[in-house]
Structures are given as C-alpha cells and as structure tokens.
Amino acid sequence: MAREQSGGITPATRAPVSSTAGGDAPEPTGPESRLSLLLARHGGVTEAWIREALTTSGVTPRHAVVLMHLNDGQLGQRDLGARLCVDPSVLVTLLNSLEDRDLVRRRRDPADRRRHIVEITKAGAAAVTKIDAAISRVEDELLGDLTPQERDTLRALLARVRTTHDGDCDGGGDPATDF
C-alpha cells in the first residue's frame, strides 16, 4: 500500500510543538494543528487504501458497507436506507448492482406487499468475509502504532464527531458519497 498521498506529502501525525518558553505559549496555528485538516488528510489516505484493498473482493466501499449491514440479518429496504443515510433512489441503485451480482436478494414482505425485504446471499456473505479481511489489513497497517486501547479511544471519539449539519445521521457515516 502506498504510504504517500498524491503530491508526495506524508500525513503528519502530530502537531508541531511551540518553541516559546513559559506557560503563555501561543497555540500552534499551522495546518498540522487543525483537526479538520488532519482528519481530511488521513481520511483521504484511508479511503485510497480501502479502495485498493477492496479491489480483491470486487466491491466498492459503498457496496461493502451495504453488505456489512446485511450480514447481521435481513432488513426492510427503508430501514436499510435509513441506517445508511441514503436517498431511496441511491439505495435502489446500490441494491440493483449488488443484486445483479447475486450478492443480495430483494423480495416482497409477505405481511406487507408494499415493503421489500433485503437479504444477503451466500455469495454476499462470502464477499463480506473477504471485505472484513481486506479492511482488517488496512486497519493493521494504518493503526499499527496504536495499542488496542488507543484504537478503542479513537473509535469512541470518532463516533462523536458530527458528520452532518442536521444531526439526522450522526455516527452512521454517509455512504451516499463515494465513501
């Protein structure tokens, strides 16, 4: 996996330390001190590594997220869309692609014919096994210098970061984007 971001810049992992002596040292103001810029930089690198790793499983990151949600059991199509925070038309496009590859199956709910149930197929479950392995390799490479406790702390902190303005899908990510 490439360790450099386009342009040859390796992401900084620490903000520069101020060289001013005394307790009234000004806060660093460079880009390395801005959390949003650090998240964007690390996010870009992580996205590229995930995309590269998932090529072995033959799915995109968006497809991987759908399959991972369905791996725990069938869901109503609306429930799946709400969980993923995607517009119904985007979800239909994702499901059509996965269904064409026999990774998921949609069927009418016998109790309510207006409702569709989405379930993962055996081929989809096999793909999730490959997806999990690929993502684990990326996480091990990316987070190799962190202890398990530090990884848990990072996961907990990132779960609290707002990723929407209205708060409807905080913590759930936004697979409507490319990743």
Rank of each mutant, 00 (worst) to 15 (best):
G171R: 05
R137A: 15
I135H: 02
R108N: 10
T129C: 03
I50Q: 02
P16D: 08
V104G: 01
N71K: 14
E32P: 01
A176C: 10
R41F: 05
L37K: 03
R105H: 10
Q77E: 12
V118E: 01
P110W: 13
T56Y: 09
T60Y: 04
L75H: 12
P16V: 13
E4M: 12
W49E: 12
D168R: 15
G167F: 11
F179I: 07
P11I: 07
H63T: 04
P148F: 10
M1W: 03
D87E: 15
T121S: 15
D132L: 13
G43D: 05
A134F: 02
G173F: 03
L142S: 05
Q74S: 14
D140P: 01
A111F: 13
R115D: 02
G173I: 13
T29N: 04
R83Y: 06
R3D: 04
V86C: 07
D174A: 15
G7E: 02
R83I: 07
L146N: 02
P110N: 11
R137D: 11
R155C: 00
A40G: 06
K122C: 00
T29H: 08
A134E: 00
V59Q: 04
V104P: 00
L37C: 00
A2Q: 09
H42D: 05
A21D: 02
V128C: 09
E99W: 03
M1R: 07
D174V: 12
A64Q: 04
L67I: 06
R105K: 10
P61G: 05
L37W: 10
H165Q: 02
A133K: 11
A82V: 10
I117V: 15
V161E: 02
I120A: 04
D140R: 15
G171V: 06
A156C: 01
A64V: 05
R162H: 07
L54F: 09
H165K: 06
D174R: 14
A133H: 09
W49I: 04
G76V: 07
H42M: 07
R155H: 06
D174G: 13
T153K: 13
S97H: 09
